[in-house]
Design a protein around this nucleic acid. Structure first.
Lengths: 131, 131
DNA sequence: CGATTGACGCTACATTTGTAGCATATTAGC
DNA sequence: GCTAATATGCTACAAATGTAGCGTCAATCG
């Protein structure tokens, strides 16, 4: 089962999902304004996220760059699903359209999200998972 | 700002929202099947939740009974709002209808939820908050 | 080539969360 | 009244989270 991201970790993923891989410094510059974290904090988070399998680290010319290991859709889907299903007992069709207004989700992603939201119990859809 | 409930705490709130106030024992009997917690655990959670202002403790004939301090709608709204707004940048109208299928939400509650989801920044709606 | 700057790898530490046990005060039955 | 369940009040403790600093090595600027 996909690892769960905490609020703080989501702050980072949010930026990583923007597209290109980012170095710790870049991630920091991006999130620091909204978070106020010290560079060390950003780096610690990034490291833990890699251990948890939330991000993938690569080496580009000597510097480490990070990329999300899970797509925005997957994470959003897992969170929404857990919330609605487990906590609020919403059964059956959970419309992915509820996120249709997000400027980040494309039509394809919405379709994917729909699949996640309405998948039955076993999340054995062990296909590759990335960007 | 309303205190935030963790996943485990939500498991308890879920049952408390069922209607009547419950004693620790009752809450435990209700959640233990799904959680497997020991009675102590349930009680610890309840105590912390009271400190955090998530539940209200009352004394009925000597026994402590708990009631949710925040309505299901308020909590759901806060969670959904945070998720969509802060993390997924979904702006503007966030349809409360996305939760329309929950067997727990009445029309009035949906209206309330809608208000929460689409309220502007300042959550200075310091009105009473209860069941 | 020496001093400076940034990236990395570790270590640190206070809180919060998840989970639970123990001792004592009570209450309900014999 | 005495004993057996219970409810309460504390204490415990490991893991996860939030936040950050230090020392070192390598690339860079003079």
């Amino acid at each position: 089962m996909s690892p769960t991201a905490t609020r703080t970790e989501l702050s980072i993923l949010k930026h990583l999902w923007s597209g290109n891989r980012m170095s710790a410094r870049e991630v920091h510059d991006a999130v620091s304004t909204e978070t106020g974290w010290s560079y060390s904090t950003t780096r610690t988070l990034l490291t833990r996220m890699e251990e948890k399998g939330l991000v993938a680290k690569a080496d580009v010319h000597g510097v480490a760059v990070y990329a999300p290991a899970l797509s925005r859709v997957t994470v959003l889907g897992a969170l929404a699903r857990e919330l609605t299903r487990d906590v609020f007992d919403i059964k059956g069709a959970l419309p992915a359209s509820m996120f249709a207004d997000s400027p980040h989700l494309t039509g394809d992603e919405l379709a994917e999200l729909d699949a996640i939201l309405n998948a039955e119990g076993s999340n054995s859809k062990d296909g590759d998972e990335k960007q």
